[in-house]
Nucleic acid binder design. Structure first.
Lengths: 149, 149
DNA sequence: TTACATTTAGTGTCTATACACTTATTTGAT
DNA sequence: ATCAAATAAGTGTATAGACACTAAATGTAA
């Protein structure tokens, strides 16, 4: 659906303003659909994001601040998200041996299980959410990377 | 900055997965910068969105559910956002004469003042946030509209 | 008209964002 | 060696998103 119909706005001042609104609306469109996938596993999109970061470590520990740096939303609170995941038994916290300010985080077997349960569905969803051909997706990624300067 | 550096992820499974992550990251990038503009006026991005919808009405009232339909995030809670704006004196609530379930909302002089204070800065910010030329912005809007099917 | 379904606004609760703050530890300059 | 600055993790608080729920008003069909 065109943005104008989706939010019932007839016109935009210019294409730059429309692009801003289009990006915000499209993110909400994506997150809403992803959330429904996470729901049965009692996982939020941001908790999923943290688990993905931990999985990417392939066994080596990562500190809370490094998780924060890798998060999609730089303003989110990795400390509290890790605590939520720990309560669910999906991660463990360990004191960092070289710097006692830091805390090493590791994904558990249970955390890995949750990710593999989601793997196929997520891949399928991401593919169907984006109704573009391969050339168009490449172009979109190029434009988004360029947009941010 | 390329997405890979921004979130320190070396590669993506495919361009579709990268596009999803790119869209989520870019939205956060935009909202974070917009929030700083709203901060001095004690306005949140979503409250601003509601005020913009009300301004677009050019004086005619709009119900809470119609505001909801026009919002960028369809899951947000127009009822509570309107209440916050009312407490700040930026909107008024009136009982709808034809349907007592509904509540008509109108923007006040104060609400309009806040919008005009932000007008120039917002336009400038939106323009500088998007580091694309005119043809590229058109292309981006086309791709985002097509993406959602 | 009565009974039932639908619509509208609003509430409750959990989670997350935004941002200022605290505490503990480490760094680094003198 | 000392002490201020910087860094890491975590806390407090206000706002918002996600989603189930309620209450009141309206629509509709028998």
């Amino acid at each position: 659906m065109r943005l104008e119909e989706a939010i019932k706005q007839k016109e935009f001042k210019d294409q730059y303003n429309k692009a801003i609104v289009n990006l915000l609306y499209t993110q909400s469109f994506i997150v809403t659909k992803q959330s429904r996938l996470f729901k049965p596993l009692s996982l939020s999109p941001e908790q999923y994001n943290v688990l993905r970061i931990l999985k990417g470590q392939k066994g080596s520990p990562i500190t809370v601040s490094s998780i924060q740096e890798r998060m999609l939303n730089k303003m989110s609170n990795a400390s509290r998200l890790v605590e939520k995941l720990k309560q669910k038994g999906m991660v463990v916290r360990e004191e960092c041996p070289t710097d006692r300010r830091q805390v090493d985080i590791l994904i558990t077997e249970k955390g890995m299980d949750v990710l593999s349960q989601l793997h196929n569905e997520m891949h399928e969803l991401n593919r169907t959410l984006i109704q573009l051909n391969e050339g168009e997706v490449d172009q979109l990624n190029f434009l988004l990377d360029k947009l941010r300067g």
